[in-house]
């Protein structure tokens, strides 16, 4: 039996190693400085890159972060600092359920709520979709970070005359910042790699994000680029898909390692 369990352990790790290995081989050979600054090439034309997709991903993830971090952190503050009652349990339940909603459903929802209302695909719709994806991750990690702060710290703060608002904002929150940032980083990595929620909210484009039109146009992203270029028969575009996938996984790897290191140290 121990042998079988050990075999299963090895079987679980093999796909990871194979995927990382292929990404490394294909990714490194496809990456050159030009992929970061040039536009996607037409089929069968060598060169080109995905500068617009990188910029698009950065823009949409930034929008998503700006929406989800304030809401997520405040919600977590409510859960950990204000309420221990039944409402908090319901909110926790809703958070967990929200994190289980498939990203394609979020994409369909944002299509109905934003894209149809404004009659255009946009970076805003994409960013909004990603923010819903990030929200539960941020709430959960922030709540856990806040719970790690010992009760004595709060009592000390209240003891010298601070009210709730001051205690939370100037004492508890600063102490939890490293762990919260870790959660935000994880959420960003998750959002950057998500494709299904962007496919019909931000769509894709061969061009740079259009600032003059206030980003209210289809916007390229790395994740959708991987999908679009993986299913075409053209070698040059497939190579770019590998390069983009390599960058996405590198981002995931880095954030995972950093979050491991950051959470291993505790302030209290």
């Amino acid at each position: 039996m121990s042998g079988i369990a050990g075999t299963f352990m090895v079987m679980a790790i093999i796909p990871l190693i194979l995927i990382l290995l292929y990404l490394l081989i294909q990714g490194i050979s496809s990456i050159s400085p030009s992929v970061f600054v040039e536009l996607p090439p037409p089929p069968m034309v060598d060169g080109g890159g995905f500068g617009n997709a990188i910029l698009g991903t950065v823009i949409m993830v930034s929008i998503a972060t700006l929406i989800s971090v304030p809401i997520g952190v405040l919600a977590a503050i409510f859960l950990s600092e204000y309420s221990g009652g039944q409402l908090a349990n319901w909110i926790r339940f809703a958070t967990n359920v929200l994190s289980g909603v498939p990203s394609i459903i979020i994409g369909v929802f944002v299509y109905g709520a934003i894209v149809l209302s404004f009659k255009t695909y946009s970076a805003w719709a994409g960013g909004f979709a990603l923010s819903i994806l990030m929200l539960p991750i941020i709430v959960r990690t922030t709540e856990e970070a806040l719970k790690l702060i010992p009760q004595e710290v709060r009592q000390a703060s209240v003891g010298i005359g601070a009210n709730d608002f001051q205690t939370i904002l100037f004492v508890v929150l600063p102490a939890a910042i490293p762990a919260i940032l870790t959660g935000v980083t994880l959420a960003i990595a998750r959002a950057a790699g998500d494709t299904a929620s962007l496919m019909f909210t931000a769509l894709f484009t061969q061009f740079w994000p259009n600032w003059e039109n206030k980003l209210a146009e289809p916007t390229a992203s790395l994740a959708v680029l991987v999908f679009n270029f993986a299913i075409v028969p053209f070698k040059n575009q497939q190579q770019l898909a590998w390069a983009a996938a390599f960058i996405l996984v590198l981002l995931v790897l880095l954030t995972s390692v950093i979050s491991r290191l950051a959470t291993s140290k505790r302030q209290f």
């Binding site: 352990m9 679980a12 790790i13 796909p15 990871l16 194979l18 995927i19 292929y22 990404l23 294909q26 990595a189 998750r190 950057a192 790699g193 998500d194 494709t195 299904a196 994740a223 991987v226 999908f227 993986a230 299913i231 497939q238 898909a241 590998w242 996938a245 996405l248 996984v249 995931v252 790897l253 995972s256 491991r260």
Partner: peptide
């Protein structure tokens, strides 16, 4: 380390799994 590696499987974007599936 093994726990970390298994967790990493969950962090790899879905579209990357698809890409690997198509070509490998």
């Amino acid at each position: 380390i093994l726990v970390f590696l298994v967790e990493l499987l969950a962090a790899i974007p879905s579209v990357v799994y698809g890409l690997w599936g198509i070509f490998v």
